[in-house]
Design a protein around this nucleic acid. Structure first.
Lengths: 192, 192
DNA sequence: TGTTTTTCTTGTCCTAGTTCAATGCCAGTC
DNA sequence: GACTGGCATTGAACTAGGACAAGAAAAACA
């Protein structure tokens, strides 16, 4: 049950055996069926979850019902609306399972006490957020500066396993293009 | 010289007087003229700087010379390519002063030893990055989901002082629209 | 002060991507 | 094994915004 996350932790920290055991002891293991909404817009996000198995999507919806996928997350990723989680304020996004999921969950309280007891994790979480920030910066750049086709090619290169796991129109909403146009881009590419 | 940053630190932490004094002692104060490039694409970013005075722009340039402004930063902001700074790897972005600037600078080494000596700052920097991440998420959403006009209106609402300080075509490149089109949006708005 | 450089505006034409609507295509599921 | 509801594809008509060019205005500079 903790194999996957422990491998992850060992790669990113040098916790002692005791610390690791303590870490495991505060995690809450939970499974969710496909298409479960874990976080609704307007709710406070009370989890930071490590994906042991499954696939999750984070997205925004505007007044007109227009959807933008912020992130797909699969095994070994952490998911949370970190701002909502941390400041305990209402979230602007949705988080939804796309497959049946096994998650290892931290609540704000357990994370707090975990960080107090194992300060080294403070660093790990900071680095995690930094990586996230940096890749989001790069993505914003690409979103603005490159064509639909290039964004799509870049996407399948960066996340080669995602297209097999999620419906194509979600990928379109990640790239910031319409589902129809993504389809047209794909047929054009396949003709080459 | 340290008034501004100390006010900032006091608001975000509860350092002791000694810790604060130590923090001040490791900061390097430097001034730069307008239009100085502080970080060039391809270089390793060796600073994390608090802006005591001035205005700075972070941006990307693609192969065709197309520019995207990632961020404007003014007094009380920290600027750095955090991924490059932290991992000591080449940056993909430029950082440039738009006005004469007074900066308080941390090098990777001083930041490292600072965090070791004042662990509370680890938390402050993590929160800083989290805020950054969260606002970038919101921005990506708006970039994809809203019209040029709405993006511009949102921008001047969020950053009311920036338009007086930076050329308009940089704002266009922040919004992801052409300078010409921003001009057209503005004349249309002023006619109403 | 005049000169040079940078920034801003305006118009025309153009295109990448959207919207809408129709059709076909599975994968469940009763 | 027929029926359903989500997905994907395709086409036609449309539009937000881009590219280019040329001038006006405003800063910077000496």
């Amino acid at each position: 049950m903790f194999d996957r996350i422990n491998t992850y932790i060992i790669r990113h920290t040098n916790l002692t055996v005791e610390e690791l055991a303590y870490f495991n002891s505060v995690l809450q293991y939970k499974t969710f069926p496909k298409k479960t909404i874990l976080l609704h817009e307007g709710e406070v996000c009370n989890f930071e979850a490590f994906i042991n198995k499954g696939c999750i999507r984070m997205y925004y919806i505007d007044e007109n019902g227009f959807e933008v996928t912020l992130q797909f997350a699969i095994e070994d990723w952490w998911v949370s609306d970190i701002a909502s989680f941390h400041d305990q304020k209402p979230s602007a996004m949705f988080i939804e399972t796309l497959e049946e999921c096994e998650l290892l969950i931290l609540s704000p309280q357990t994370k707090e006490s975990l960080l107090a007891r194992v300060p080294q994790l403070e660093r790990m979480f900071r680095i995690l957020v930094q990586r996230n920030l940096s890749s989001l910066q790069g993505r914003l750049f690409k979103t603005i500066a490159t064509s639909a086709q290039d964004k799509y090619l870049d996407f399948i290169k960066r996340y080669p396993t995602i297209p097999q796991r999620v419906p194509q129109h979600y990928i379109a909403s990640y790239l910031g293009i319409s589902a129809e146009f993504l389809s047209k881009v794909r047929t054009k590419l396949s003709k080459k």
